[in-house]
Amino acid sequence: MTDPIMSARGSIRTSVAEKAMFLRSWLRDPRLVGAVAPSGRSLAALITSDIQSADDPIIELGPGTGVFTEALLARGVPRKRLVLVEADRAFAYSLGRRFPGVRVLHMDAAHLGQTGVFFGGERASAVVSGIPLLAMPVEKALAILRGAFLRHLRADGALYQFTYLPRCPVPHALLERAGLHAVRIGVAVANLPPAFVYRFQRM
């Protein structure tokens, strides 16, 4: 039988280690990480709440410490149907060790348009993004959106993005250039800081 006290201590140690790694990554490149602390479980629950089918392939961008990854797996997404795209080498290495059976790609999400499809002839039903679009140059954010929608998402697929500001993380003009529209699906009040989640789909 698992000792609940030992399990709690293990969870605390893991949480502290994850936060320390997150802070080190932020110090290396604040624009890449976009926050000084990992996303909370309330945000993870919200950003994955719209995903209905557990059998559809899913892509996660910028998984960081894996909070959203945990939520996706808890929803029943099979490990072989999940691809993590992580630009930070330390995060990518940690994710590979933490989630065996899940494919982790150490690459910049801006290169999504230059890759082959990740699931053979099948496209993903959803992309869950933890990357800081607002902190990026416009052309890089546009490259990420175009790569996700033109190369990897099926026609009715959606991209889920969070932001700490109470407005859409992608300017209207940029949405028009990408042929997308956005809907806010909720706010994770318990997250620190509170975070707003948007769903992006083709017009």
Rank of each mutant, 00 (worst) to 15 (best):
residue 1 M to F: 08
residue 2 T to F: 14
residue 2 T to K: 09
residue 4 P to D: 07
residue 4 P to I: 03
residue 10 G to D: 15
residue 12 I to G: 10
residue 14 T to M: 15
residue 14 T to L: 15
residue 16 V to A: 13
residue 16 V to R: 15
residue 18 E to C: 13
residue 18 E to L: 08
residue 20 A to I: 14
residue 22 F to L: 04
residue 23 L to W: 15
residue 24 R to W: 11
residue 25 S to G: 10
residue 27 L to D: 04
residue 29 D to A: 13
residue 35 A to R: 08
residue 41 R to P: 03
residue 41 R to G: 06
residue 41 R to H: 07
residue 43 L to K: 11
residue 43 L to P: 04
residue 44 A to S: 11
residue 48 T to M: 02
residue 51 I to R: 07
residue 52 Q to L: 14
residue 52 Q to W: 10
residue 54 A to T: 12
residue 55 D to N: 13
residue 56 D to K: 15
residue 58 I to L: 09
residue 59 I to D: 05
residue 59 I to H: 02
residue 62 G to Q: 01
residue 66 G to D: 06
residue 68 F to A: 12
residue 69 T to C: 13
residue 74 A to S: 05
residue 74 A to G: 05
residue 75 R to C: 08
residue 76 G to A: 06
residue 77 V to R: 07
residue 77 V to C: 06
residue 78 P to V: 11
residue 79 R to L: 12
residue 81 R to Q: 15
residue 82 L to H: 08
residue 86 E to Q: 03
residue 87 A to I: 00
residue 90 A to N: 14
residue 94 S to P: 02
residue 95 L to E: 11
residue 98 R to G: 06
residue 99 F to V: 09
residue 99 F to Y: 09
residue 100 P to W: 14
residue 103 R to G: 07
residue 103 R to H: 05
residue 104 V to T: 10
residue 105 L to Q: 12
residue 105 L to W: 11
residue 107 M to Y: 07
residue 108 D to W: 00
residue 109 A to Y: 07
residue 110 A to N: 06
residue 112 L to I: 02
residue 113 G to A: 11
residue 113 G to V: 03
residue 115 T to Y: 06
residue 115 T to E: 10
residue 116 G to C: 12
residue 119 F to I: 15
residue 120 G to L: 08
residue 121 G to W: 05
residue 125 S to L: 04
residue 125 S to F: 00
residue 128 V to L: 01
residue 130 G to Q: 04
residue 131 I to E: 02
residue 133 L to R: 00
residue 136 M to K: 01
residue 140 K to F: 01
residue 142 L to D: 01
residue 143 A to H: 01
residue 144 I to A: 00
residue 148 A to F: 01
residue 148 A to K: 01
residue 148 A to D: 01
residue 149 F to V: 00
residue 149 F to D: 00
residue 154 R to D: 01
residue 156 D to G: 14
residue 162 F to Q: 09
residue 163 T to R: 00
residue 165 L to G: 05
residue 167 R to C: 08
residue 169 P to R: 01
residue 170 V to F: 03
residue 172 H to L: 09
residue 174 L to D: 00
residue 174 L to V: 13
residue 177 R to D: 03
residue 177 R to V: 02
residue 178 A to W: 03
residue 180 L to F: 00
residue 181 H to Q: 12
residue 182 A to D: 02
residue 187 V to K: 15
residue 189 V to C: 02
residue 189 V to L: 11
residue 190 A to S: 13
residue 191 N to M: 13
residue 193 P to Q: 06
residue 193 P to K: 04
residue 197 V to G: 00
residue 202 R to Q: 13
residue 203 M to P: 12
